[in-house]
Design a protein around this nucleic acid. Structure first.
Lengths: 208, 208
DNA sequence: TAGATTGTTAATCGATTAACAATC
DNA sequence: TAGATTGTTAATCGATTAACAATC
């Protein structure tokens, strides 16, 4: 069954809860229980679970937590090993490098790059910073398909082009700018301005 | 006119482009031009502009860039001064503190907090780190309505509760966890797991 | 059996897109 | 005038929600 974009984005929350429940010793879980936890509608969770689970739920019982966890991890791609590179080892880039989450999501950062000549050669968390010139060669050689961009706004498009030249498949963009890419490449923007827009609007509506 | 959530999230991109165009000396802009830049549908941009602009566009010409910029900044709330606190001065928190964007978005960080006794008292970018015990008092005293959470997963809910106790209006959450809050408080999740889920799916579909 | 929870089918809702007349 | 771009009205699309029979 195909899973909607929105449903997919709710999965990590479900997964986290399932793991908690499993740790507490539970073996089964029902849609209404999950819905209560997150203040979602029961029917929404029911649909989401149905779309992720490989087996049918059992009326009155729900789903086996263990199987459901595996199914969700699969849907989310955590079991596919993905190699990535990170470009821009400023404060945000370094914060991300320290983020243990990557491994859990199946992502390994196998190369780090920066434009700043002073940073090239530096060793950060066991990895040597390479010059951005080498991005596309590196990507092709190591068959990297995911690129993380944490450079400043002005450099982002250039870096993006280098990744594209390296035959990258998807880009996770933290630079506050719109990136132009060929059609078949996905750019996922970690768009702080957009998030702030929603927060702002909320505060304004509450007259805060 | 009311603006949809999705449209609101596209505004920062438009705004950025408008400023660029203005810097290049342009005085007017049309929906088709913006659409071309971002590879959006013309009609979508047209609707978005109509929903943000205080004046009607002129057929064959479009909109005055200057007025449109002001209208969008208003819609996005960049002109409302908002004071915020940031909790968790680990690597991510510090990266955010160095983010010059805040000012532009109308946000001033007026207090920083951390649970780690070793960090309390430390001065980071001119601000002294306070203990988390003081969060709710501080928020009430200074009438803070926006809280940024950059603590590890395990501490996030406790911090969140302290913010709620301090009468916060909205929370920008970078911790990879779902936060339970009263109904009238907005939690905007900077949800890396969700973003990664979309990236993963894309790579999987391309067999990468 | 009775009741909780499931899956399915249909209705609603919001956002996007299409079609087109109005106008500078 | 001719053509580009606008605003408006209607159609489509995808996601959410409602209703309900099936079942453990």
């Amino acid at each position: 069954m195909s899973i909607s974009k929105q449903a997919l984005q709710r999965m990590p929350y479900y997964l986290q809860f399932l793991k908690n429940q499993k740790a507490l010793g539970c073996t089964t879980i029902s849609a209404p229980k999950i819905a209560a936890k997150f203040n979602f509608k029961e029917i929404q969770v029911r649909k989401d679970l149905a779309s992720a689970s490989t087996v049918n739920g059992k009326p009155k019982i729900g789903f086996q937590i263990e199987t459901l966890i595996k199914d969700m991890e699969n849907v989310l791609g955590y079991n596919d090993k993905k190699e990535a590179i990170l470009v821009g080892v400023g404060s945000l880039g370094q914060a991300l490098l320290g983020y243990k989450g990557f491994g859990y999501y199946g992502i390994t950062i196998i190369g780090i790059f920066d434009n700043d000549p002073e940073k090239v050669g530096e060793v950060i968390r066991g990895k040597t910073v390479k010059s951005c010139d080498q991005i596309s060669d590196f990507c092709r050689q190591h068959n990297v398909h995911l690129g993380v961009i944490t450079v400043p706004e002005k450099q982002a498009q250039v870096v993006c082009d280098q990744l594209v030249a390296g035959n990258i498949g998807a880009i996770w963009n933290f630079a506050p700018i719109y990136l132009s890419v060929p059609e078949n490449i996905l750019v996922q923007n970690e768009n702080m301005a957009a998030s702030l827009a929603l927060l702002s609007k909320h505060l304004k509506e509450k007259n805060m």
